[in-house]
């Protein structure tokens, strides 16, 4: 599902997930803390290169995923750049809206908008390192090792397991409904979707019931214990983290001194 399919094909698949988690979080936090466009672009390049170079993902895959948040970023940056201006303020471009309000673009807010855009792209590319490298099951085990409460981790593992069952069920119901013209008009579509959701709920419920019975008959006492697969520790990834952080900080300092 989604990015997970690619994570299973990653070259870093046999490496422990904890260092990957720290590498991502480190790059992410530095990227959003610096608040500069250059650091964002550098993070985008570095983390993208790591995903492609170390993880062995194809660059086209990464670009396809990077395009996904662009819709939000474009729409979300619009109100930053284009905003009401007080009368008499200098602007790159301005127009009267409804003949009374003056809206426009100033150099200052254009800069803010661009910074936010670049910063967000860098952060997204850092997050993709985590999405495209460790599979979700490794990640939940890493969370357990980091002392996230056991109940929460178990819920995550169960939810992840059920996701695939239910999305398959939903997909099959949808195909059946569409082949009977269930989505021909909007009204009919709403009703079909409602029926899909409710029968999905019922099936999910019965599935949970059956899983619980199956567990109980195998001596379930309230804990789902699984053996972790063998992984190499991957401590060298901390070195990569240090290198990425160093480049980010150097870029930030260079940008500041250049602006002054």
């Amino acid at each position: 599902m989604g990015t997970d399919r690619y994570a299973y094909a990653s070259r870093l698949r046999r490496v422990e997930a904890v260092p990957k988690l720290w590498l991502t979080l480190g790059a992410l936090i530095l990227c959003i803390s610096c608040g500069s466009a250059a650091v964002g672009l550098v993070t985008l390049a570095l983390m993208g290169a790591l995903t492609v170079g170390l993880g062995g993902q194809r660059a086209a895959t990464l670009v396809r995923f990077l395009r996904l948040p662009l819709a939000f970023l474009a729409v979300g940056c619009l109100p930053i750049v284009f905003r009401p201006l007080p009368a008499g303020e200098g602007a790159l471009w301005a127009a009267e809206v409804f003949g009374r309000f003056r809206w426009g673009v100033t150099a200052e807010y254009l800069r803010v908008g661009l910074t936010v855009f670049c910063k967000a792209l860098g952060a997204v590319s850092a997050m993709y390192f985590l999405s495209l490298n460790p599979p979700m099951t490794d990640l939940t085990q890493a969370l357990e090792r980091l002392h996230v409460p056991k109940l929460l981790v178990e819920l995550m593992e169960l939810i992840y397991r059920f996701l695939f069952v239910f999305s398959d069920t939903a997909r099959r119901i949808r195909v059946a409904q569409e082949s009977r013209l269930g989505y021909q008009t909007a009204g009919r579509g709403l009703r079909s979707l409602g029926e899909l959701a409710s029968s999905l709920f019922l099936r999910a419920w019965r599935q949970a019931d059956r899983s619980y019975t199956a567990l109980e008959s195998r001596g379930y006492t309230g804990a789902l214990n699984t053996l972790p697969a063998t992984r190499t520790p991957g401590r060298w990834l901390y070195g990569v983290l240090a290198a990425v952080a160093a480049v980010q900080i150097l870029t930030w300092m260079a940008e500041r001194s250049w602006l002054q």
Binding site: L151, L155, I159, S167, A197, A204, Y212, L215
Partner: peptide
């Protein structure tokens, strides 16, 4: 626990459906 996990997965699948 099982029922809550089921509910969570249901919410995820529901939010991926298109209205």
């Amino acid at each position: 626990k099982m029922l809550l996990a089921m509910c969570g997965a249901f919410a995820f699948v529901l939010s991926a459906l298109k209205i």
